[in-house]
Design a protein around this nucleic acid. Sequence first.
DNA 1: CGTTGCCCTGACGTTGGCGTCAAGGATTAC
DNA 2: GTAATCCTTGACGCCAACGTCAGGGCAACG
Lengths: 132, 132
Amino acid sequence: MRIGELAARAGTTTRTLRYYESRGLLPARRGTNGYRSYDEGDLKLLRQIRTLQDFGFDLEETRPFVECLRAGHPQGDSCPASLAVYRRKLDELDALIGELTAVRATIAVRLAAADEPPADEPPLCEMGGQEL
Amino acid sequence: MRIGELAARAGTTTRTLRYYESRGLLPARRGTNGYRSYDEGDLKLLRQIRTLQDFGFDLEETRPFVECLRAGHPQGDSCPASLAVYRRKLDELDALIGELTAVRATIAVRLAAADEPPADEPPLCEMGGQEL
DNA sequence: CGTTGCCCTGACGTTGGCGTCAAGGATTAC
DNA sequence: GTAATCCTTGACGCCAACGTCAGGGCAACG
């Protein structure tokens, strides 16, 4: 399989594959004419990368998963290094979601305060404008 | 007040102020020597910008708030254009938080599945291995 | 009068993950 | 045979919000 077909089968572009190769993530064999040659295993590796990328992983963070697959494991997350990335990502996500939720709440409050300023006298009970 | 003092009082850098000026967001008067000159009002504008930036707003998104203040309103979010940005941001945040939460859940599931694989016999309830 | 410390403009560097040419060689379809 | 497609490498472009020089001016202190 050549680069165009692999790209199409993974729903990506040839540019992306060459980029991954340049990063040492997805090296390719070469045919006699210099064309890159890939097999089904490469497709699996590529799909692993793409899935993680869709999750918001950096390219470098996908490396342990790819190496795990290349080492013969059935799943990219069968290796300790991959699981470590998972855990780190969970922490990052929790932190990020927490920050975003706090910002959301702040904005909601300010919006409510500006949307209904005709409060000459403050109401007795103020509920937070939760809308999530 | 010159650029260095304004930057210090707002907890930012002179480079940042020149950048904002280049974007037309925070223009400055000039002294006879060509030095930029700012007043307390500029500090207020700058603080508005910085606050929104900390919330994750794009620079362009802070413009309505700045113009609102410059128009004489006590708060940057006293104008309709600012409130529209608030609402748009709420929607964006809800969408983003939703996606991140979904990813978080997926990763948590995979991590749990890999952490405890000693399940010789499948549990009664199988959840699909969703691949977002 | 020198030196330190502010200020000026202009311009290139950073980060990630590619997109988009450009100029050419190989393959394939008809 | 030749035109349309594919492939190759190389290199610049993009996006945001600045960081970081480079080279020079103005000001005040001792």
